[in-house]
Design a protein around this nucleic acid. Structure first.
Lengths: 234, 234
DNA sequence: TAGTGGTCTAGACCACTGC
DNA sequence: CAGTGGTCTAGACCACTAA
């Protein structure tokens, strides 16, 4: 894990530099930090992928012009905090239903299995940003109620109360427009542009833990991402 | 560039396997392919980042369940090919105008600078997928016409005819709906859901080379991406 | 020409999984 | 226990940039 320590050290170094400033050469870093150059490179690689520094072959490595944030996706709370916005949640409805054909496929359980279904309004600095339809196999979260989820992070609850560690998942992003109900909750006109996220998250053991369908306001939410160097586009 | 050849070779190998099948161990690949294990790992790293294989420490490397493609963004042509779709382009209009206030800011040039403006219909398997508004400082691409861009990749032209190497950039993704003109070209009803991409790409020297505004059909285009393990979401 | 990042090698030890 | 991926080392040569 040495490269993780190097990465954190370099993150602090970069924070103390101005955009455009050069980092010390990799060979110098290796010598002063007591690591091989390959290990230093792996640490710097991480700074490159999160967009904090830029490499220029034959010249050096430099602090990136803008700390462009927000490429990958984690939880709503994390996402908002990364954007400098206070996250929040208000539970609109919660019940338990049989999975049925659709959820059974998404959560990889039998159609008869009880599933906790929670609808939450997600808030950004106190005003509506998204509507979230959360589905979790009920046996994973015994005793969980809709109130538990008001204002709290579901992922924090999963980890702290139920000991479920999330390992990864898959997300699909589509463009959509709001229907009447969504427009009402989000406070936007009918048929406003919106993002539709569908996310399935898995535990470290490989079990599908949640299926979330979220509708984000298109007028408040945008996705900014750095572009990696285009490949040889024959 | 050996790891690139290894990556392409492994891509073919993976295509011949079924989801869940194991890849040969890294040490075996290194021996049979005549490379060091570090080089093999770098090739496999690329397959992991594009989601074709999954590593399970202590067990092995396996073909991913679903070839979940299309997370990062490069050119339209690359994007379509990665989805197994034949890319195409039809130029709708092309002219040269003064940059003006908006383009001047995006391309970081004086407002009086001539800018080549090209509107293209981007095709996927022959039918409309997106409308692309391309803006390039005219001095960068002397002699370029709209016809040059019909069916060809702009990036390939940039590199081969003008020697411009692209290094990176930034992209903003928003949700929108189609207006009348867009609906007509794309063949969808008025106010259909759509993605709006705005991309600025830079050359290796740091100069802004292009500003592209693209509208993608929401009914044909979706973005699938793997989720990295959620951080400690306090 | 000297310095930089980009790549590659041939080893090594570790933590982990499965038998 | 043997086999796997994860990490790390101490070198090496290359292509490129800038003086």
């Amino acid at each position: 894990m040495k490269y993780l320590r190097l990465r954190d050290h370099l993150l602090e170094v970069v924070d103390g530099l101005a955009p455009g400033d050069p980092l010390p050469p990799e060979r110098t870093l290796a010598a002063t930090l007591g690591a091989s150059r390959m290990t230093v490179r792996k640490a710097v690689d991480e700074l490159v992928t999160i967009g904090h520094v830029v490499r220029r072959p034959g010249v050096g490595t430099f602090v990136a012009a803008k700390h462009s944030q927000g490429l990958a996706v984690t939880s709503f709370s994390e996402d908002m905090r990364a954007r400098g916005i206070a996250p929040g949640a208000r539970t609109l409805a919660a019940d338990t239903v049989a999975a049925g054909p659709s959820l059974s496929r998404r959560l990889e359980v039998s159609p008869a299995v009880p599933v906790l279904r929670v609808r939450r309004l997600r808030l950004a600095d106190g005003s509506p940003m998204a509507i979230e339809h959360l589905h979790v196999p009920a046996d994973l979260v015994p005793g969980l109620t809709g109130e538990d989820l008001t204002g709290a992070s579901f992922y924090a609850l999963l980890r702290e109360r139920y000991g479920v560690r999330l390992a990864g998942g898959e997300q699909v992003l589509e463009a959509t427009v709001t229907d009447e109900e969504e427009s009402g909750h989000l406070g936007v006109p009918l048929h406003s542009p919106a993002f539709l996220f569908e996310r399935t998250t898995r535990s470290a053991e490989g079990r599908a833990v949640e299926f979330v369908r979220s509708v984000y306001r298109g007028d408040r939410y945008r996705i900014v991402s750095p572009i990696t160097a285009p490949r040889r586009g024959a």
